[in-house]
């Protein structure tokens, strides 16, 4: 039972409560750094590190932190992890760090992270909080990657820098520019909502059929 519960917390972040597709959180990095798959994954990993780390600390100390200063404490914890991620990336992969630029420090302001601390980590035991953070971060990573992959494939004819269509491919320049982020995100959200709509419709049909079956 216990195992199932934490598993459940992990899964919900990836699909049902996906931070991007369902909650539309964290739009700033989502649109800004997804012009290539590598950047998207680096951003996703950095966010995962910060989110899991701060959820762990916040949940562990949830009974120690007084509620009057909880937001300040969350921010201190988050900012510390962000700084650690910033310097680590700068030392290990300077190229990627240059591409991501100001958006690494801006993880502090990602409402996805503060939101999870306030809504979940500060109220639930450590194990569940970490699973929830992992799930949300994976959902965010999946969203970043799907956007980054689409934009890199169309905008550069490549994935992870490997050319897919040969040299004569005509790149869609707009996909690498900011408008491409909005367009791609819009189309992905469209499909996500269309899928949910169809699913609800289907469930409604099933329910109605069952009801009429029971009546008859």
């Amino acid at each position: 039972m216990k195992k199932n519960e934490s598993y459940e917390e992990f899964l919900k972040g990836i699909w049902r409560d996906n931070p991007v597709f369902a909650q539309v959180l964290g739009m700033c990095p989502m649109l800004a750094v997804t012009n290539s798959a590598v950047n998207a994954i680096a951003m996703g990993m950095a966010t995962m590190f910060v989110l899991v780390g701060s959820s762990f600390l916040v949940s562990t100390f949830r009974n120690v932190i007084p509620k009057q200063v909880r937001i300040s404490c969350f921010i201190i914890i988050i900012a510390t992890f962000v700084t650690i991620a910033d310097y680590t990336l700068l030392a290990l992969v300077p190229g990627v760090h240059k591409e991501l630029g100001a958006f690494i420090p801006l993880i502090v302001a990602n409402c996805l992270i503060l939101g999870r601390q306030e809504a979940f980590a500060s109220r639930y035991p450590t194990k569940l909080a970490v699973m929830d953070a992992l799930g949300m971060a994976c959902g965010f990573l999946v969203a970043l990657f799907s956007l980054g992959a689409v934009r890199e494939i169309l905008g550069d004819g490549a994935l992870f820098g490997v050319k897919l269509f040969g040299d004569s491919f005509e790149p869609w320049v707009i996909m690498i520019l900011p408008p491409g982020g909005f367009l791609t995100l819009g189309v992905i959200l469209l499909f996500f909502n269309w899928f949910k709509y169809k699913k609800d419709e289907f469930l409604d049909d099933v329910a109605r059929a069952e009801r009429s079956g029971a009546d008859g």
Partner: peptide, 23 residues
């Protein structure tokens, strides 16, 4: 309240200095 924030800030500061110096 003050104590909590001070301790949190202190730990955070030490962690940041640590990562800065090492990288």
């Amino acid at each position: 309240l003050v104590l909590t924030l001070a301790v949190a800030g202190l730990i955070s500061g030490v962690a940041i200095i640590g990562i800065y110096e090492s990288t």
